[in-house]
């Protein structure tokens, strides 16, 4: 078995960026300030989970 090294910087960077954008969109659509840390943190967690899984 080989350990997959395809978890590249590109993947995590793209996923985290998408997560931040998602977080901003969720914040705005729910009527929170766009920079509300909850939404952005949530988006980053989603990005990381998607990148890892």
């Amino acid at each position: 078995m080989r350990i997959r090294m395809a978890y590249s910087v590109k993947l995590f960077a793209t996923a985290i960026l998408a997560g931040i954008i998602l977080g901003i969109m969720v914040n705005v659509s729910l009527g929170y300030k766009f920079y509300d840390r909850g939404g952005i943190l949530g988006g980053i967690i989603v990005g990381l989970l998607i990148a890892i899984l």
């Binding site: 977080g23 914040n27 509300d36 909850g38």
Partner: peptide
């Protein structure tokens, strides 16, 4: 600290 917006995002 994620609160409702963070939980909804997830």
């Amino acid at each position: 600290p994620l609160g409702l917006p963070g939980t909804v995002a997830i």
